[in-house]
Design a binder for these strands. Structure first.
Lengths: 339, 339
DNA sequence: GGTCGTTTCGGAAGCGTTTCCGTTCCGGAA
DNA sequence: TTCCGGAACGGAAACGCTTCCGAAACGACC
């Protein structure tokens, strides 16, 4: 009696519901041209038989894959993971499957864009916090799918991100407001990304803020390092070794700031009494370590991107450049300069 | 001359190479029964036409999907992300695609195991740090695919993880060795997982270590909270409010430990001078915050699981229960108790 | 009652592979 | 020379769906 639960196909469903495959297909896909009664019957039968369409066959016959590729440069860093988490949640709610592609390092990157492994496999690709070069854009186009970006670039594609320059200004202005005039910047670049696509908003903010405050730039107070806590620590050491160290440090990210703080602590300096430190992102540990920072809504950016994608897949219009707001979060790592 | 690069199929390749589709297919799949010369010719033509097989058609006709599902209870927590990162890297290297399923919260969990959205879509599923209940096992079986576990359970499936109890002992023994006798434990449970599948090794270690040291258990020194830094902070507050606070705290994870430290700092207590704190995991920020901890190789566990999966998919034997070693990392948050 | 427009539904042609069976070809053994 | 076994290759039947196109059914309207 009970059918081997493994091999039921749409034909079985159709037969059991007393309709043709064409109708069954339409019913299951919520397509136009099926009476409500019929649709319900088909759906019921399908449920009964615990039938699931074969995505392969479906796709092969012309339907969508129901899959979207997500390309990320990092997975285990909080920022990217949180972005991914937001994105995945809305995509999965829409019954889309998420194919994860971790493109790590320049070489890997080249390989990815050359082989285009997602080709023919997905309906769309989302690039997360992943600046795409021009040549790479051209390759992407080859996939012939819709493309969306989130968390870090103004792309030719619909995208959502924060305004890095504004975020940087919020951090800098806080420091300036507190009365600091000798402010250092620890700029972080991603060693896994080609130079030409590194975003520069957070750096620009530094110079702009200083200019607006009428403070001359002292290039010795600017250190550029690879992204990371240890690198932030190194940068801080470099900063401390100068004849006239800064009274405040503006770090491009919380992790970098945390590294800087470690160096300060080990040097016997107190934060914020001796030196103020501010980061960007509002990483979860920022709260645990009382780090003043500029919060950006990360998960939300992922969700937003997901919703934009759904719009597009549904054939609707969607915004092109969404900028989500950032917000200064004052905690215990900043204070007015001494004396 | 140049064909519309979009619509070439295997038939085109076969024709261009002067062979039948059967042969072309065999050649492209490195199958048995094709002369080396022919294979090379086919491959060359395919490359020339920049042909890629249609995974849908391939699968439909009987091949494998080339996809594996990864089920995780959290994405943005470092531990899970790192596991995922390791896994993804080896899977992708083997040209397998990773389908990400974030199963978050009990309800979501039930939905997942009920609908089995990965059904018919993958060759295998990897459950990451995701204790699977018995009923759920039965459902999983329904998918008719191979299953592997990593990072946190001794499952009926091949799996890789650390020994939680040993890790806990390493932490406790360190505290005991330093001379602490009044040691508190902040136990963390995952609110998103059903109670019956919560692992208990780290808690067991606490009691066992105390017993072996001949120290009676004071249940007021054991606080159980939901996983998280804030919760760790709360737990610490509770611990401090006792008539006779502990001299050392053993936290189930680094994030929890960090939360505890925040409470201590705010209470004006010094770590490790007044109270020692130890965590487990060696989260990247542990290094930045000088937290003593027990390191577990997270990414490696993911990689290992990936390799095991490849073995199985290749039809080879593989180990069933892999236990990777943990290691005490002494930093600045632990010291002998005062006077 | 006939004509026509709408809906609802069914037949059947693909979609691009894999693989089961054969068939052909070739060298060596008898 | 004949026969035979194995390697190399081809024909064609699935695989499970979507969708084009046309048929049927059903009212509405003249």
């Amino acid at each position: 009696m009970a059918q081997s639960s493994q091999k039921i196909n749409m034909a079985d469903v159709a037969r059991a519901a007393g309709v043709s495959m064409a109708t069954a297909s339409r019913a299951l896909n919520n397509d136009y041209g099926v009476s409500e009664a019929t649709r319900r019957r088909v759906l019921a039968v399908a449920e009964e038989l615990s039938y699931v369409v074969s995505p392969e066959a479906s796709r092969l016959a012309g339907g969508a894959t129901g899959r979207v590729a997500v390309v990320v440069p990092h997975i285990s860093r909080w920022f990217f993971a949180a972005l991914l988490e937001g994105l995945e949640s809305v995509l999965r709610a829409a019954d889309l499957d998420v194919l994860l592609y971790h493109v790590d390092g320049i070489e890997d990157r080249h390989d990815f864009f050359h082989r285009l492994p997602a080709r023919r496999k997905v309906d769309a690709v989302v690039v997360l916090a992943f600046p795409v070069g021009e040549e790479e854009q051209r390759r992407l186009e080859l996939m012939g799918v819709t493309i969306i970006a989130a968390g870090g670039q103004h792309a030719p594609y619909p995208n959502v991100s924060i305004d890095d320059e504004i975020a940087g200004r919020q951090a800098m202005d806080h420091l300036l407001f507190l009365g600091h005039r000798r402010i250092a910047m620890i700029a972080a670049v991603d060693p896994d990304q080609p130079d030409e696509v590194q975003p520069s908003g957070r750096s620009n903010a530094y110079y702009a803020a200083l200019r607006d405050a009428g403070i001359p730039v002292d290039e010795r107070l600017v250190v550029t390092v690879d992204w990371g806590g240890d690198q932030g620590a190194d940068a801080m050491a470099k900063l401390l070794s100068q004849p006239e160290p800064p009274t405040a440090v503006y770090a491009h990210s919380d992790e970098v700031a945390l590294g800087a703080i470690r160096t300060l602590r080990r040097a016997g300096l107190r934060v914020p009494d001796d030196i103020s430190v501010i980061g960007i992102d509002d990483h979860p540990v920022a709260e645990l370590t009382d780090l003043t920072t500029v919060r950006q809504p990360v998960r939300e950016q992922g969700e937003r991107a997901g919703r934009m994608l759904l719009d597009i897949l549904r054939g609707e219009e969607t915004e092109h450049d969404v900028v989500v707001p950032t917000q200064l979060v004052i905690r215990g790592s900043t204070a007015p300069p001494r004396g």
